[in-house]
Amino acid sequence: MKLGLSIGYSKARMDLPVALVQRAEQLGYDSVWSAEAYGSDAVTPLAFLAAVTKRIRLGTGIMQLAARTPANAAMCAGTVDALAGGGRFIAGLGVSGPQIVEGWYGQPWGRPYYRLKDTVAIMRKIFRREEPVTHDGKEISLPYHGEGAAGVGKPLKSILHMNPAIPIFLATGNESTVKLTAEIADGWLPMGFVPGCMDEYRPWLEEGFRRAGTGKSLENFEIQATAHVEVAGDVKAALARLKPEVALYVGGMGHKDKNFHKDQMIRRGFGDAADRIQELYLAHRKEEATAAVPDEWVDMKSLVGPPARIRQRFRAWADSGATGLTVRSAQPEAIEIMAEAARHA
């Protein structure tokens, strides 16, 4: 199984873990993944890392669609890929949620399924430079001809000769968008993926491959799962340290009636806990919401404890059907232990 390293997005200050990324590259990690929410962006840190690494792939996990047009997303991907020497950038895309899309970016939530589909189609046309780009989509059109248009938009072709095969991964989780991912993308950043869940996802993926009609299958499709990793002597205490983030995402990262993180928890059999966490969090009882997060839910999504426990539990991830696992950890020891576990799985 290929390993990735998550650097996430910044907190109050930008603190890029350059030494950790370089050590991961030395240990054979395949990729490093950035993120964005409503602070630091996902692309700029990868441009910096391109200059201080040699071979590790540089993935956005994810670029939010509302943050940039498809053309700008393609420009960012093509630029960093060229700076990195070509063949290293992965354009990971996702829709975020309506609170951020409309509240932070000032964009309409619209129809995310078609926005994903239009964005990928436009980006691929830009990468390939076969002709000036036009697109007549259900959510996005080039040239623009909607309200306020001057009517003089001109189809253009990228000045930069980009890598025509920059891979595009989509972060999705429900049936329709997972099928779309398998149909149009090169890889998948699955929401809520845990060992044992491929039986649920496999029919959706196979339907998407069938729609693609290009010989796509699980044999040539990347699935990059994610897990928190923490080396610790006290498993229960380690799980407790991860609960505030769960409470934030399940309780407050999204509208009460549209929260993808809560939906994932419900689908995994923790519906009562998810409802209680959200109720408490939205009532500003954050400590109680954190306490309501079940140990079992956190443990299912993470690898924590002594090294022997991490190595033993990693086997389930290696056999899960995912082709890669992104490690979320700032611990140098955890990065080392995961490299060892992957070599011997």
Rank of each mutant, 00 (worst) to 15 (best):
K2L: 15
L3F: 01
G4Y: 04
G8C: 07
S10L: 13
Q22M: 06
Q22V: 07
R23I: 02
R23S: 04
Q26G: 14
E36T: 14
A37K: 05
A37I: 10
G39D: 06
S40Q: 10
S40P: 07
D41P: 10
V43M: 15
T44M: 07
P45S: 12
L46P: 05
A47P: 09
F48A: 11
L49V: 11
V52I: 07
T53E: 03
L58A: 01
G61P: 13
R68A: 15
R68E: 06
R68Y: 08
R68P: 08
P70M: 10
A71T: 15
A71K: 06
N72P: 00
V80A: 04
A82K: 10
A82M: 12
G85W: 03
G87H: 11
R88D: 01
I90D: 08
A91K: 04
G92C: 04
S96L: 02
Q99T: 11
Y105N: 13
R111D: 15
R111S: 13
P112W: 05
P112C: 06
L116R: 03
D118Q: 08
T119F: 07
V120A: 01
V120Y: 09
M123W: 02
K125F: 04
K125Y: 10
E131T: 12
V133G: 05
H135D: 07
H135R: 11
K138V: 10
I140K: 08
H145W: 02
E147R: 14
G153D: 08
P164H: 08
A165K: 14
P167T: 09
I168T: 02
F169H: 13
L170W: 04
A171I: 06
E183K: 10
I184R: 02
A185Y: 05
D186E: 07
P190N: 03
G192Q: 09
F193P: 00
F193E: 06
F193Q: 05
V194D: 01
G196E: 05
C197F: 04
M198P: 09
Y201T: 00
P203F: 03
W204M: 11
L205F: 07
E206W: 06
E207Q: 15
F209W: 02
R211E: 00
A212N: 12
L218S: 05
F221V: 01
I223K: 15
Q224E: 15
A225T: 02
A227Y: 10
V229L: 09
V231L: 14
G233P: 01
R241S: 15
P244C: 06
A247E: 00
L248R: 03
L248G: 00
G252F: 00
G254V: 03
D257H: 11
D257G: 01
K262E: 14
I266D: 02
R268G: 03
R276E: 13
Q278F: 01
Q278P: 01
L282S: 11
R285F: 04
R285I: 06
E288A: 15
A291Q: 02
A291K: 13
A292P: 01
V298G: 00
V298Y: 00
K301A: 13
P306M: 12
A308S: 14
I310M: 14
R311Q: 13
F314T: 04
R315W: 04
D319T: 11
L325Q: 00
S329G: 09
S329F: 10
Q331W: 03
Q331V: 03
E333R: 12
E340N: 07
E340V: 05
R343Q: 12
R343V: 09
